[in-house]
């Protein structure tokens, strides 16, 4: 079992009691709580790299800000565009790099991206059994469960029960297609546009697209008028 959460448990509870209105528990309190050995290692290595002029405080800060600015909102924008523009959707499915470039998104050189489309017949879900490959650029930092041994190991062998745990029921006559990101491609699911969303604008549609819908562990809810 991977202990992704252990360090934060005490803070979760403190946070709950305080009743603060934040979606996630806060970061660890760095001035008071026990320090992990890897946190010590991080500070030591950072100190040495800065001393030797290999990295600077400023560029680390800039890179951290850049990462913080990345979230599933960018992925949602791409999905909403695909929902309203059929030609764009076809380009997105055929050549993700160029289609994203049309929206001003440069995916860089580390990996390629690929979009897989949900249809009434097929539900797609993404996993990486060998590590935790994830389209960070479009979805931000992955949730802990995506990186957990439990999700990585079980999604390939028992996807329907994993999906059910996430609240996604796939009918017996539908196909579940699991994508194991084993190489240089990062996958993102193009969910089906929800029923009742015909009147919505592109930006309203983007608000319906969650991170998990783009992993395949959720589907956008139908819109009630």
């Amino acid at each position: 079992m991977m202990h992704d959460h252990d360090h934060d448990h005490s803070h979760d509870h403190a946070h709950d009691h305080a009743g603060a209105g934040h979606a996630h528990p806060p970061q660890r309190d760095h001035d008071a709580g026990p320090m992990g050995v890897y946190e010590v290692m991080e500070e030591a290595v950072r100190t040495l790299l800065i001393e030797k002029g290999i990295l600077s405080h400023a560029e680390i800060a800039v890179q951290m800000d850049l990462m913080d600015s990345r979230s599933a909102a960018l992925g949602a924008k791409v999905i909403a565009r695909a929902w309203v523009d059929l030609a764009f959707k076809q380009r997105l499915l055929a050549d993700c790099r160029s289609a994203l470039a049309e929206l001003g998104i440069d995916i860089g050189q580390i990996a390629e991206f690929k979009v897989v489309e949900n249809t009434p017949a097929t539900h797609n879900v993404i996993v990486c059994t060998l590590c935790s490959c994830y389209p960070k650029l479009l979805l931000g930092i992955p949730p802990a469960w995506y990186k957990s041994l439990a999700y990585r190991s079980r999604t390939v062998v028992d996807p329907r029960s994993v999906l059910a745990e996430f609240g996604v029921t796939v009918a017996a006559e539908q196909t579940v297609r699991v994508h194991d990101s084993t190489a240089d491609l990062r996958y993102i699911v193009l969910p089906m546009r929800p029923a009742g969303s015909d009147h919505m604008s592109e930006s309203e549609l983007a608000a319906l697209v969650t991170r998990d819908a783009m992993i395949g562990t959720a589907v956008p809810a139908a819109v009630r008028s």
């Binding site: 979760d12 996630h24 760095h30 802990a144």
Partner: peptide, 23 residues
């Protein structure tokens, strides 16, 4: 290489990254 192994239930709780992890 864990595909198909059994590590029990998926813990779906989420937390923000600590500052050192972001670094």
């Amino acid at each position: 290489d864990v595909g198909g192994l059994d590590f029990g239930a998926i813990d779906r709780s989420e937390h923000d990254l600590a500052l050192w992890e972001k670094r």
